[in-house]
Design a protein around this nucleic acid. Structure first.
Length: 571
RNA sequence: GGGGACGUGGUCUAGGCUGGACUAGGACACCGGAUUGUCACUCCGGAGACCGCGGGUUCAAAUCCCGUCGUCCCCGCCA
């Protein structure tokens, strides 16, 4: 269909004969003359109709006409200098009265939006989001291609390798009673690919996890997955990834990211911000004031410190005026983390505290100094196991900063979180902090047998504004070490062979040292688009119950289909 | 698995706490009419909802209670 683009008509086009096709955006019928805003992917232009063709919103039409300069321009449209005097109109397709408003304000319910997604996606904001995502994808591919990466597809029908989440299963017809699993990530395939001589692999790939949904979680989601051979240390990978991230930010939303990015050891992130994905757009750092209480006047806190615990302090700017009730609410948050309570110091006209007279004024001043708090501020104190004390205050730090409007908009605070522990305590056994294929740090290898919880991993997260954007590691490339890790995780030799045998074997035929990372692409898009939900950057997302209102999936299947698969539904 | 919020014409919403003139109001969309310079056009008129569904309390339920379904948010879960 030969046609011109609505959004590209400018002053210079005046006098030209054009053919336009698009959707009727709005109709203003003045009787003798009717104005129609015609919309196509390029934008909107005003048509002038003098014939009596009845048009409704979202009708699809094709017109032929002449571009003319307007008497009065419309400054709110890029095409506002011109209009098209219509000579011929052809209705290509009628639109019924709309089941939802295509206006930006007063959004319909999520379900209605998804049921009529083809209308919902016509909103400028959604069009913008789709295009933003496309630009990001282009930027990613351009950058990685230039760096010598090869995009390789990996199977969607694969085997269940019970890692973290619940698998989506696909029954096999040819081998009754067996199942494929949809991949939670291409983890093992990408490691096998670098072992196969693809020294630089990447893929923009769909992943599947059958867990409950959230605003930032869908059962199927997209990762930017990449892996490189001949890496032994995280630092060898960071410059490339930083280049990628800054390139994508620049090409997608025009934001410049200052490089190199700060590195923050995991332990420090917890201590200073009470989170392994700290929001670094603002201060309010947590201070350790344990030493002030170690031999101090408060027996309760002294005992905590003596028992290996810590007392940590969070400054709250301008918080000195908080009422007892407000403090109680904050305390509830801390209690939710398992702390018995919160202590506080107010730097008001006088310095007051929840300690009454038990703690001398000079100690209170010392606390204020260490917490970096000033006149008018409040200091919240948490005492307990160091991590619990910190994460409780970390939670409060975020809540209070949000409430106080201390988080600057338009800032992008990126950082690497490094030196995660390799293991964490699970239910009666050790679990991988990242995943079982993560390499321990060389200097911590001696602790593997003696004190595994002390072992740090060659593992890293890329954190943006308090959101985990990407997570990766240097992998284990020697079978013996991989088997040792499995043993520590309580995966026996027989089980390891059964579940991961194919992978262990691959490590026996010349596997280079390697490592990589996976970005949560949807979350990244969500942030760049300034959206609060991942669904706004996914064309056809699912509801919280995993349903698709557009197609009504999931749906029952015919008895015959089940029979072919050898399946019968339990009563 | 648990907690919370919401559900009123096609869409968004008022009403709900404190049940009775609610004969459920408004805006947008829709239909009819007027209208030759609008651009969120305007003006006049019209149609359209038994208030998600089921049960209960009551003389009386959109309103109170219970259940259920749906949507959203959070905790658990998500290597």
């Amino acid at each position: 269909m030969q046609r011109d683009k609505c959004g590209e008509l400018r002053r210079e086009a005046a006098g030209r004969e054009v053919v336009l096709a698009g959707w009727v955006h709005r109709v203003r019928d003045l009787g003798g003359v009717t104005f129609v805003d015609l919309r196509d992917a390029s934008g909107i232009v005003q048509l002038v109709l003098r014939s009596a063709t009845h048009l409704s919103r979202e009708d699809v039409i094709r017109i032929a006409g002449t571009v003319r300069l307007r008497e009065a321009r419309n400054p709110s449209l890029p095409t506002g200098d011109v209009e098209v005097e219509v000579e011929e109109v052809e209705v290509l397709s009628r639109a019924k009265p709309l089941p939802l408003s295509v206006a930006e304000e007063g959004l319909p319910s999520e379900e209605t939006r998804l049921r009529y997604r083809y209308l919902d996606l016509r909103r400028p904001r959604m069009q913008r989001n789709l295009r933003l995502r496309h630009r990001a994808g282009m930027a990613i591919r351009t950058y990685l291609d230039r760096e010598g990466f090869v995009e390789v597809e990996t199977p969607m029908l694969t085997r269940s390798t019970p890692e973290g989440a619940r698998d989506f299963l696909v029954p096999s017809r040819l081998a009754r009673g067996t199942f494929y699993a949809l991949p939670q990530s291409p983890q093992l395939f990408k490691q096998i690919l670098v072992t196969s001589g693809v020294e630089r692999y990447f893929q923009i790939v769909r992943c599947f996890r059958d867990e409950d949904l959230r605003a930032d979680r869908q059962p199927e989601f997209t990762q930017l997955d990449l892996e490189m051979a001949f890496l032994e240390e995280p630092e060898e990978l960071f410059p490339l990834l930083e280049g990628l991230a800054s390139h994508v930010f620049r090409e997608t939303i025009g934001v410049e990211i200052a490089l190199p990015l700060p590195r923050l050891p995991h332990a420090e992130a917890i201590a200073r911000y009470g989170s392994d994905k700290p929001d670094l757009r603002f201060g309010m750092e947590i201070a350790d004031v344990s030493s002030l209480f170690a031999a101090g006047p408060l027996r309760l806190f002294a005992e905590v410190v003596a028992g290996g615990g810590a007392v940590r302090a969070l400054p709250v700017p301008g918080g000195a005026g908080r009422s007892r009730g407000e403090l109680a609410k904050l305390e509830e948050v801390a209690q939710g983390h398992g702390l018995p309570g919160l202590a506080w110091v107010k730097l008001g006209e006088a310095i007051t505290s929840s300690f009454g007279k038990h703690v001398p004024a000079e100690t209170l001043s010392a606390i204020a100094a260490q917490a970096g708090a000033h006149h008018g501020d409040l200091i919240l104190l948490a005492a307990g196991r160091p991590e619990v004390a910190s994460t409780s205050l970390g939670d409060l730090r975020l809540r209070l900063a949000t409430e106080l409007g201390l988080i600057p908009e338009g800032r992008w605070a990126l950082a690497w979180i490094v030196d995660f522990p390799l293991f964490k305590e699970g239910e009666g056994r050790l679990e991988s902090e990242h995943h079982p294929f993560t390499s321990p740090r060389d200097e911590d290898l001696p602790f593997l047998t003696r004190d595994p919880l002390k072992v740090r991993a060659k593992c890293y997260d890329l954190v943006v504004n308090g959101v985990e954007l990407a997570s990766g590691s240097i992998r284990i490339h020697r079978r013996e070490l991989q088997e040792q890790i499995f043993r520590i995780l309580g995966i026996g030799e027989e089980e390891a062979e059964r579940r991961f045998g194919f992978f262990l074997r691959a490590l026996e035929y010349g596997a280079p040292p390697h490592g990589g990372i996976a970005f949560g692409l949807d979350r990244w898009m969500m942030m760049m688009a300034g959206e609060a939900s991942i669904r706004e950057v996914i064309a056809f997302p699912k509801t919280t119950t995993g349903a698709c209102p557009l197609t009504d999936a999931p749906a029952p299947v015919d008895e015959g289909q089940l029979r072919e698969l050898g399946l019968r539904l339990a009563p």
